[in-house]
Design a protein around this nucleic acid. Structure first.
Length: 256
DNA sequence: ATGGCTTCATAGTGAAGA
């Protein structure tokens, strides 16, 4: 079983890239973030023709998340329960016995911003909900754009970024709280190249100079850890014309 | 160097991303 997550930075613009990637890699599940479109605009038909069912939770201009699957999607949850939120950032569903949670964690902008407080509140609500969710569904994975580089090696220049949004201590502690639920950063279960990143700024030739961050993650529960076979980041889509600033993160599991 | 680039809503520029 192959699963992946990709912040596409507008599905309106990136649909051709996503269809090409599905065709080339045939993942069982692909989680998308920042679709930036209302549900009525979501290209269900194009994905169906490619062999994928889909569930989408979107809005105009900002945010928006989707799960694509080659297998049946059931028990859909939209947004975090008991956390009223106008921003569409989370969708969860059962696929082949696994609870798949697709999340677009708020960016936070900067430490002195209201958006940073919202980010921390959002992460706390996610944690509270996941506690119950893991109890109900021991085989759970949390895929998405976390907007957190959990470790200094996940940042191209830790000194320059020290204390900034994406790497600040409260954000990393929130990531640590997810790990404390019994989740594992699947990318780090395997040997990886140094300076592996999933996002590069469009500016300053960030990609060509590999000035990136690893902020997109696939966390897996204890029950799924033993099934993990390989984890990687596919940089190829970042080299295309008009790319997303993020690139797909991939995890392969043995069938359970 | 507090900018750099991209998308979206707009019909000039400005917000937001990370």
């Amino acid at each position: 079983m192959k699963v992946a997550t990709w912040n596409v930075n507008s599905l309106n613009v990136r649909l051709p890239h996503v269809l090409d990637w599905l065709q080339a890699h045939q993942p069982d599940v692909l989680c998308l973030q920042e679709t930036k479109q209302e549900d009525s605009k979501f290209p269900y038909d194009a994905f169906k023709q490619a062999g994928y069912e889909a569930v989408h939770l979107g809005q105009k201009t900002y945010n928006g998340v989707a799960i694509l699957s080659r297998h049946a999607i059931t028990d859909i949850q939209r947004n975090i329960p008991n956390f009223p939120d106008e921003q569409q950032r989370l969708v969860a569903a059962n696929i082949k016995g696994i609870r798949v949670v697709c999340a677009y964690v708020p960016n936070g902008q900067s430490l002195d911003s209201d958006k940073y407080q919202y980010k921390l509140r959002w992460l706390a609500a996610l944690n509270d909900w996941l506690k119950h969710e893991i109890a109900e569904y021991p085989e759970l994975m949390l895929l998405g754009d976390y907007n957190i580089a959990p470790d200094d090696r996940d940042c191209h220049d830790p000194m320059a970024w020290q204390g900034q949004v994406l790497v600040s201590m409260p954000e990393r502690e929130a990531f640590g709280q997810l790990i404390a639920l019994g989740l594992h950063d699947s990318f780090r279960l395997f040997e990886q190249p140094e300076k592996s990143f999933s996002w590069w700024d469009y500016r300053m030739m960030g990609f060509r100079r590999n000035l990136g961050m690893r902020i997109d993650h696939i966390l897996v529960s204890d029950a799924l850890k033993a099934r993990c076979q390989a984890a990687s980041i596919d940089k190829a889509p970042r080299k295309l014309e008009r790319p997303s600033d993020h690139t797909p993160v991939v995890l392969e599991l043995v069938d359970g």
